[in-house]
Design a protein around this nucleic acid. Sequence first.
DNA 1: TTGGTTGCAAACACTTTGCAGCTGA
DNA 2: TCAGCTGCAAAGTGTTTGCAACCAA
Lengths: 152, 152
Amino acid sequence: MSRTRPLPAAEPCPWDEIPGRLRATGMRWTPQRRTLVRVLQSMEGHVSAAEIIERCRAEDATTTPSTVYRTLDVLEDLGVVCHGHAGDGREEYHVLPQAPHGHFYCDGCGAVLEIRDELAKEVVRLLEAHLGFEIDLSHLTLSGRCRGCREE
Amino acid sequence: MSRTRPLPAAEPCPWDEIPGRLRATGMRWTPQRRTLVRVLQSMEGHVSAAEIIERCRAEDATTTPSTVYRTLDVLEDLGVVCHGHAGDGREEYHVLPQAPHGHFYCDGCGAVLEIRDELAKEVVRLLEAHLGFEIDLSHLTLSGRCRGCREE
DNA sequence: TTGGTTGCAAACACTTTGCAGCTGA
DNA sequence: TCAGCTGCAAAGTGTTTGCAACCAA
């Protein structure tokens, strides 16, 4: 299973390279994969497995969860998505992560903010300096309360 | 359910105050709770629900998961533990958090480090300054690779 | 006594897997 | 053709809940 891989694929794979990259390793470019990839393209950012499945079903009512999960695994190997866990522990997929970033979930209002670029680097650097850990920020979602909810 | 509460209880509850605090609100101090509390006392830090259940079963073979989960919920309201999610999305409990701190899990060797005190404050401050989020670090476990595993 | 607790079993949500048949290359 | 892929159904996980019996206060 790809999710036991230590760290996400090094370089992200552009959308239009996907069919070729699949075929290059003997894999197939099927209608179901076309649907999933089209859906993912319209969802850049963070998405739950449930959302992905629902959107696929909207495009193709015959979509099956197992196929979606299996294909997401394949796409994760290609670096198109990488998965982590939302605050409630469910699978969460990050689409086409260009730079290391995490997500921030507000317990109060449910808002989600991305922790990206400079800030992500800063956090990574800080933790690395203190603990010697190379953090995989893209794999997690922090939780807390946003400014708005704190002022209530 | 207590796990929908916005943030963990403000002040941690010393072990010996637990019986009294329970009774004060009409709750009972039962053998099962005694067992669980004893087990938790011997496990300060991060523990998975499975570990807690297993250890309880070692002390009392009749221990039931449902009772453990329910009691952990009660103890979370008292501030004795607070729960989050491990890297794989399972429930994880932090026992008697004295100061805000998170955990760091190494994908390589499985080592767990605590992110505490100064470093935790620094991270919290950083994220707060940039995003306006009041982070609940105790609610999460970061993942990545530790120094040792990176050098392999 | 009596309402909080417990144990059991069943329900749950989500994800994974086995397998026979289908299909892209 | 023929491996990879799909759909289905079934099995897992890990956690939660309903309920009757139980027992701490």
